[in-house]
Design a protein around this nucleic acid. Structure first.
Length: 974
RNA sequence: GCCGAAGUGGCGGAAUGGCAGACGCGUCGGAUUCAAAAUCCGAUGGGGGUAAACCCCGUGCGGGUUCGAGUCCCGCCUUCGGUACCA
């Protein structure tokens, strides 16, 4: 084999690794193990499109880490699996009639083939799919643990990690039952327990997506009220749904982020998502209700009773983060869904209120959150009494207040809240400034920052922060208010109306008429898994009735020995369920007794390095952490957090494109502005500066003429200043940009093609060489060619290319001693590559190996003792060629488990170094000095340099700065 | 609007406060070849100068700190990503 031919050596080594179980991780570490290393990729959804070039980016990074760690003696766990439930397979089933299971396993086969072709060192014996019945079993089991638990926020305890926490998930049997519930009977107790479970049912309004035929979680909806997947509109409907009580864990999910080695930006995203805010709840007495006491009477009764757990019927409780602005509250707003809406509506306002409430309930999420459309609302007819100044202020109903946050009611302070100000202006409500901004020139109205109090009675002049504390304490003393904490985070909507997901292991009890009694019971753990019934109709019915409700009777119903009739839960779990705990199962994938063996869990967890896309920064990672903590609380896990170090790989964009714009033919007939259309523009180019994008159409800014975007070959372009222009018309500025890869744009790169043309090693190397792992970067085909050429040079450095018959060592590679220069280069390279891998700075590590190759390629002879460690350095990056060269170099021991080369710091020092000499900070000359030269020696060496003598002539040296081994700088005058 | 990340040659990118542009791509020139592919060697930020010596400018823009700033500080601009009335 003469030339470097990845097409023949890559399959050879892949087969070798498979046959020898090279990457199978034994439970027991090898002798002399340097500790465990669990390196995990975010496992892919096996889509029908196959692997995308974005996948191998993170996968190569982790593979490098693993191969590097093995050579450093680590006991490495590096598994791969499939997040295989999910909508696309089911949508495909609806279209074609193919069962989602068939589609899914076919796609998995293709994904596995593609991953194996890239030579990743996964332990395939641990492969799992979230759709495997054995896996589903334990997903359902974990759900049951949530179902069978409640959260005790008061419980103080010390976990196996030695940390003391307040708050713990506990078995539902330990839930204290209040006496009045107990006395109400068995059903009341069950209901009370159900209300406290970590997995519970709720009737709250949810996001129903008719287009997908399912309910979606808040997290799956985009800012403009559409489904993240496929972009269908979403509406609000009241449906019975399963929820997971993630909000109980809000504080711990927030606090325990601190110790994680995650990017700060991801931590911040999670912090914002959890959205903790500290403020106060304040009670306002409503005036004019029949049962209303006088304000003073109420106040004195409150003084005695203190702040109540739940307010009286004629009291409106609000949440505010700015209790210091209480004097500026000029009206109140309650959400249309607020329970007091009816009670507060006076006779003459009843109709208007009912009308408004109906309208806002029909509004989609999109309409309701569209800020551009302005605020709406209706006066209830009632008034509340401001507890600090007894002022009567009107109570409004408006949908800019959300029932799901705080108490669903606010005190409006239009002087210092943008939304309230907008509303006040729309409905001509009074605005009172109560905070003076620190800057006298700033208008207090609309100021939302910190300042000092004005128009606030005895509190005038108090700084905001102090005022908040004071007023909260005062309200608390009077029983009118209390410090309160709120979270933006909502409970997790956990059910979906789809077929292709885990069935819930839940039975609903039925009464004699076959109607649900409202009581549910868990499927016995010994009966798990609840398998999906065989069905051939998956199509959504356009109603929220899940496909599983059309399952065969024998699946759907059961009658117990005592005659109790049961019907299965027909919702299914969301795709997140399976990905919530897969990292646990990898440690013990075949266990039939438990979801994971306790000893194995203790050994392998937490995951040491977790690499994946930033799109999972919030949801997947938050959900996983939540499940992990529940299992931790229940004593099933030893660690409180699943992922120690997290890295987000950047997106890979398509090749850069040059786009020019010209008037489209259709513009001539359909000129948007009805103006006579300028003929001279027709078919002429338009500078991209004059182009605006509207509804994915390009328009000329002035005339509104419709433009077409034309791809321009790079050869037709030139650079002018900061812009690119057309060579044929240099006045035309064109766009130069790389876009996301997408089928519609036609710029998708298929890894199969790259492997066919250049080999897996080149693909791996290129993806690492493109730039920093975490950065977004454009694809560039000639870049792939570049690293392919590099591998060719490496090949020729070691292999005799002229020998057509066999792969033999190049005659120049000999058993000779390294000279000083070679020793230095080798050790420099080992040091740099080692440290760069540790920093995940793979692009620079590759540069260093290129430099090594450039230097050694031309040398004759080339010491074998330099080639051997070099091949070891290359191995994590390009393992196939490395194995082949390792063999050519006559090595018989496994390269995979060979010892990583060590560098010797003392071999790095050079005897003479070149340093810059500056005058007034400007580089003027370079001089050679002994490496150990001190300040004086450097200074005198610099002063005898010819250029420096010339430059210093007639000038006075004011100061000399010498940094040994670094530089000399003369500061001069005159 | 808010939050985050980033702006360095024609392009991807490199640079513990100390020689800006390592390495790669592209381009140009040369060698090899009948010719090409492949390979090898050299040049390559911009401007001036004689393709020398050398000089000036240069890391988004404007200030500042420092003997010295791509790097630190203040104020902007642009691009990308996330987010959306959370009181």
């Amino acid at each position: 084999m003469p030339r470097y031919e990845p097409q023949s050596i890559e399959p050879k080594w892949q087969q070798f690794w498979a046959k020898n179980n090279t990457f199978v991780t034994p439970d027991e570490p090898r002798k002399g193990s340097q500790g465990k290393m669990y390196v995990l990729d975010m496992f892919p959804y096996p889509s029908g499109d196959g692997l995308h070039v974005g996948h191998p980016e993170g996968y190569t990074a982790t593979d490098i880490l693993c191969r590097f760690s093995r050579m450093q003696g680590k006991h490495v766990l590096h598994p791969m699996g499939w997040d295989a439930f999910g909508l696309p397979a089911e949508q495909h089933a609806i279209k074609t009639g193919t069962h989602p299971r068939d589609t899914t396993y076919k796609n998995i086969d293709n994904f596995r083939r593609q991953l194996q072709m890239l030579g990743f060192s996964y332990d395939w014996s641990r492969e799992i799919s979230t759709t495997d019945e054995d896996y589903v079993r334990w997903t359902q089991w974990i759900f049951l643990q949530l179902f069978k638990s409640w959260y005790d926020p008061e419980r103080e305890w010390t976990g196996p990690d030695g940390k003391t926490r307040t708050g713990k998930a506990r078995p539902i049997s330990e839930l204290p039952i209040p006496a009045e519930v107990k006395s109400a009977g068995e059903d009341a107790i069950r209901k009370y327990q159900d209300e406290h479970r970590l997995a519970y049912q709720s009737d709250a309004p949810v996001n129903w997506c008719p287009g997908l035929g399912t309910v979606l979680s808040n997290e799956e909806i985009t800012a403009d009220g559409r489904s993240e997947r496929e972009g269908h509109p979403v509406e609000r409907r009241k449906l019975r749904q399963w929820m997971l009580r993630i909000t109980s864990y809000a504080d711990r999910l927030l606090k325990e982020l601190d110790d994680l080695d995650w990017p700060e930006s991801v931590k911040l995203l999670q912090r914002n998502w959890i959205g903790k805010s500290v403020g106060a709840e304040v009670d306002f007495l409503v005036k004019g209700l029949e049962s209303s006491d006088s304000f003073e009477a109420w106040k004195s009764s409150r003084k005695e009773s203190g702040f109540k757990r739940t307010p009286e019927e004629n009291v409106l409780r609000v949440y505010t983060t700015r209790p210091d602005t209480l004097f500026g509250a000029t009206y109140m707003v309650i959400a249309p869904e607020h329970p007091l809406v009816d009670a507060l509506s006076t006779a003459d306002q009843k109709e208007a209120v009912a009308d408004y409430v109906r309208k806002s309930s029909l509004k989609s999420e999109l309409d309701r959150t569209d800020l551009a459309k302005g605020k709406t609302g209706v006066f209830s007819g009632s008034y509340a009494i401001n507890p600090v100044n007894k002022k009567e202020i009107p109570i409004w109903i408006a949908d800019y207040v959300l029932i799901s946050y705080g108490t669903g009611a606010i005190m409006a302070v239009p002087g210092h809240d943008e939304r309230d100000l907008e509303f006040a202006q729309a409905f001509e409500l009074p605005v009172i400034p109560v905070v003076q901004p620190p800057d006298e020139d700033v208008d207090p109205i609309g100021f939302t920052g910190l300042g000092t109090a004005i128009n606030s009675g005895e509190f005038d002049g108090t700084p905001t922060v102090e005022f908040k504390k004071k007023i909260t304490a005062a309200l608390n003393a009077d029983g009118l208010g209390k410090e309160a904490v709120n979270f933006r985070l909502r409970d997790w909507l956990f059910s979906r109306q789809r077929y292709w997901g885990e069935p819930f292991p839940i039975w609903h009890e039925l009464d004699a008429d076959g109607k649900p009694t409202g009581n549910v019971r868990a499927v016995e753990e010994s009966e798990l898994p609840v398998r999906l019934p065989d069905m051939d109709d998956f199509a959504p019915k356009g109603t929220p009735e899940p496909p599983l409700s059309a399952a065969p009777e024998e699946w759907l119903y059961r009658t117990l020995d005592d005659g109790t009739k049961l019907r299965r839960e027909t919702n299914s779990m969301p795709q997140w369920a399976g990905s919530c705990w897969y990292y646990l199962r990898f440690c013990d994938p075949k266990n039939s007794e438990a979801f994971i063996d306790a000893e194995k869990e203790k050994y392998w967890l937490p995951v040491d390095v977790y690499i994946g896309g930033a799109e999972h920064a919030v949801l997947h990672l938050l959900y996983s952490r939540f499940w992990h903590k529940v299992l931790f609380d229940l004593g099933h896990l030893h660690s409180a957090e699943p992922f120690h170090k997290l890295v987000n790989q950047g997106m890979i964009l398509g090749e850069a494109e040059f786009t020019a714009y010209r008037v489209a033919a259709e513009s001539a007939v359909s000129d948007q502005r009805d103006e006579p259309f300028a003929d001279d523009l027709q078919q002429n180019w338009v500078s991209s500066r004059n182009v605006e994008e509207k509804d994915s159409k390009y328009l000329e800014k002035e005339t509104g003429a419709i433009l077409e975007a034309v791809l321009i070959d790079e050869k037709e372009t030139a650079k002018k200043g900061n812009d690119f222009i057309l060579k044929s018309d240099t006045s035309i500025v064109i766009d130069s940009r790389a876009h996301k890869m997408s089928k519609s744009r036609g710029n998708v790169i298929n890894p199969d093609d790259i492997v066919n043309d250049y080999g897996a090693d080149s693909l791996r190397l290129y993806e690492m060489f493109m730039g920093p792992l975490e950065q977004t970067k454009p694809w560039n085909m000639s870049g792939v060619e570049g690293v392919y050429r590099f591998l060719g040079r490496v090949w020729r450095m070691i292999v005799d290319e002229r020998n057509d018959d066999a792969t033999v060592l190049h005659a120049d590679v000999q058993d000779v001693e390294l000279n000083d220069e070679q020793t230095r280069t080798l050790h420099k390279t080992i040091k740099a590559v080692t440290e760069d891998i540790e920093k995940l700075s793979f692009n620079t590590a590759i540069s260093r190996m290129m430099e090594f190759t450039n230097e050694f390629s031309s040398q004759q002879p080339r010491p074998k003792s330099a080639m051997i460690p070099f091949v070891q350095l290359l191995n994590p990056f390009a393992p196939h060629i490395a194995e082949e060269l390792w063999e050519v170099l006559g090595q018989t021991e496994s390269l995979t488990y060979s010892e990583w080369p060590k560098f010797d710091e003392s071999k790095l020092v050079e005897s003479e170094i070149e340093i810059p000499v500056q005058i007034n900070g400007k580089l003027r000359a370079k001089i050679k000095v002994p490496a150990e030269a001190d300040k004086d020696a450097m200074e005198s060496a610099a002063k005898v340099d010819e250029t420096i003598i010339q430059q210093l002539e007639g000038k006075q040296i004011v100061k000399t700065i010498c940094v040994p081994g670094r530089m000399v700088n003369f500061v001069v005058k005159g």
